[in-house]
Design a binder for these strands. Structure first.
Lengths: 203, 203
DNA sequence: TCGATTTGGTTGAAGTGTCATCCACCCTGC
DNA sequence: GCAGGGTGGATGACACTTCAACCAAATCGA
């Protein structure tokens, strides 16, 4: 049942074991549904999307509420064109604004606006509630730990070696520092004025 | 830190515990990167996308290579308009074709074409290899089991009770049968002529 | 039998992500 | 000082997703 011949000549494909197959199906389904759910919830009871949220989180996490565009891309593991388009849309809605970088004529900053700040402040609490209700209320402590370890293992595999994608590398050459370990962002989780948006809650 | 009153006035948000926060960040990151990676891989070394793949898997899984449109939507947990648009694009590329349903004048079938069959046959092996390499080669047996259980718990939460979304319910009223348990599709995994595309490999 | 409702499915518009391309600026070597 | 390459970022085209509206066939109720 496990080995079979394949298209042409005698290529043998390594299919998944039944156990793996079941786990994979379960994971894929859950992940798709969870994403859809979080997106819907966010756009229903706030004025921003998950993507907006992710960007805003990064911004509120900086003391000065401003980031260089590509730095943002690297943190979020987004393509630079994605950031560019997305920031443009957010700018149109007044959530952020762009500013030129004086030290580097090519560069530009994405800057949090007041409106952006209130948008994320409004969105964060219910998002956190939902994540907790949908995910963590279902899991034991051991499972939470397992989830983290499994995720980290896979993520590591994805971002090291020949496998690391262009995006992961963010156009740069050095393997991006991927998990700003404890203290990576001082006061992690606590933004400016007591706003706690739980950095990285999403994407 | 844990107890709190509700809305406005002195609303205190139940943020995540540090451990949960870490797990969540890790999961979100992994999942985003993994999706991106699988999509890229699929579109690079085959002529179809992950979405196409998901549709084709369902089709190859039926003895006659045909499904009613909404049934497809329910299996994939997609919105009906998504299916409709997507099938239209796939039809344009010759991967499937539509046929009218004689027993129900409103209905229509999506039917696998030869070209569709060869497309998925060509795509499946390397997809399976990638999934195995990126995910399962990183995990112990216990972790695989944990992944499945965690996923199932969350998925169950997502698709039961008040939480079940319109999509999950697929416009119908009865809670869709969600995991065609063993034997749900006889000869599960083995398509027509010995084509084994590992049903449900994605989405 | 006929109107109201539900169901299966399509359509169009608007938001989003990806790819390829492009431009302006920086940096290096000569 | 300047030619060439690398980097930061924007842009346009295209594929994909969602939402809302729509339509026609089926079903239900009186």
């Amino acid at each position: 049942m496990m080995c079979q011949l394949f298209p042409y000549a005698e290529r043998v494909t390594r299919w998944l074991e039944p156990e793996q197959q079941r786990a994979w199906r379960a994971y894929v389904r859950m992940q798709g549904e969870l994403n859809a759910h979080l997106n819907r919830q966010m756009s229903v009871d706030s004025e921003i999307s998950m993507a907006d949220f992710a960007v805003l989180v990064q911004l509120t996490d900086r003391p000065d509420g401003r980031v260089r565009v590509l730095e943002l891309a690297r943190y979020l593991h987004w393509e630079k064109s994605r950031i560019s388009h997305h920031v443009a849309r957010m700018e149109k809605r007044g959530l952020v604004r762009r500013e030129n970088c004086s030290s580097d004529g090519r560069g530009s900053f994405v800057v949090l606006t007041d409106q952006g700040r209130s948008a994320i402040e409004a969105a964060a609490p219910s998002h956190a509630e939902i994540v907790r209700a949908l995910v963590f209320d279902q899991l034991s402590d051991t499972e939470v730990e397992a989830l983290r370890e499994i995720s980290e293992k896979i993520f590591t595999r994805l971002t090291t070696g020949e496998c690391a994608s262009v995006i992961a590398r963010g156009d740069a050459d050095d393997p991006v520092e991927v998990m700003p370990e404890e203290g990576g962002c001082p006061e992690a989780g606590a933004g400016r004025d007591g706003v706690d948006v739980q950095v990285g809650l999403l994407e």
